[in-house]
Design a protein around this nucleic acid. Structure first.
Lengths: 171, 171
DNA sequence: ACGTTTGAGTTATAACATAACATCGCTTTC
DNA sequence: GAAAGCGATGTTATGTTATAACTCAAACGT
């Protein structure tokens, strides 16, 4: 799976919103949901959630691990994989299988399938809330007498900001 | 990514067709296509294609490697990854990213996107020729001004033969 | 307080994939 | 037919992603 993604490039659409607000909202939403479900959003778990929210680019487990280490957290692989497993179970994060990477879920209260547009240049992943697609995929499976459990839809290409190579990517 | 897949289980639908014929047809089709495209289907490449066609279950690179070794082929990882790269480029195989595994393409002449139903119990992967879905995903991307290049659609659950746990899986 | 459950620490290793460089054989060109 | 060029393969080493298995500690219900 080749990728041109430059780790220093921020997705273009990221310049136009207050991302700190974005993260704060996601974290408070997560706290509320965990309380409702009697799930414990412990410090490591919360920190991992914050980290995968800090960019619109999916983060690899070992990238997360590095940042945990910088924060003084324990940093052996199981730590991060366990935290991620928890976040996935709670619907607070998604795994992007084609990148072996993880990202915060934009609407943890409603969807449990993530549909993504992934830019191979800047590495951004945009989650799309597509209830109609979900329904349609269920129907496709049903037509084959297949009991559908999980859907993976990952669409790759170039995001709007990366389609015109002559203009410098905005930071 | 948890899976119950038992490596000794064959998919139920596999009992009802002559799979050798299946493989033979796939191989001759591949030879023809390679000739048309001036691509060299060398012995290793052909053997790898044959191997990934021998079951309806996607095979991991190291599984393929083991079988190549049994045949007396060279068996270091680059050998198999290079052969797979070739087959993917020629549209003769697909990568199932959620399984880190590979499978022969059922209709290499027409489609280059593979849509899969993957059984988590028996490990089978059925490719679906869904032109309508392809069109629809293109439209979804276009609506977001996204330049779509590759589509990954992997639907997991239980295949028809694995939905009734009381009846023994057919061999 | 006590046992049970859940989370986290630790060590080791499994599983998947590629980098980098050497070699071999074919064909193209002179 | 020698030499250059090229595509395929061999070889060694290493990078990257993920989990097994066991231990310890903190939280929770009773």
């Amino acid at each position: 799976m080749p990728t041109d993604s430059d780790p220093n490039l921020l997705p273009a659409f990221c310049t136009n919103h207050d991302h700190h607000l974005c993260i704060d909202q996601a974290l408070s939403k997560a706290k509320r949901l965990c309380q409702q479900h009697n799930a414990r959003l412990t410090p490591v778990r919360e920190r991992v959630l914050e980290l995968i929210w800090q960019s619109h680019k999916p983060l690899g487990a070992y990238q997360i691990l590095d940042r945990l280490a910088q924060d003084g957290f324990n940093s052996a692989p199981p730590t991060v994989y366990r935290a991620l497993e928890f976040l996935l179970e709670q619907g607070l994060a998604h795994r992007i299988t084609s990148l072996n990477a993880f990202i915060g879920c934009s609407h943890p209260e409603r969807c449990h399938q993530g549909y993504f547009l992934i830019c191979r240049k800047c590495g951004s992943a945009q989650e799309l809330p597509l209830d109609a697609l979900s329904t349609q995929l269920k129907q496709i499976a049903m037509a084959e007498n297949f009991h559908l459990e999980t859907q993976i839809v990952e669409l790759s290409g170039l995001c709007p900001g990366c389609q015109h190579p002559h203009q410098e990517p905005t930071l």
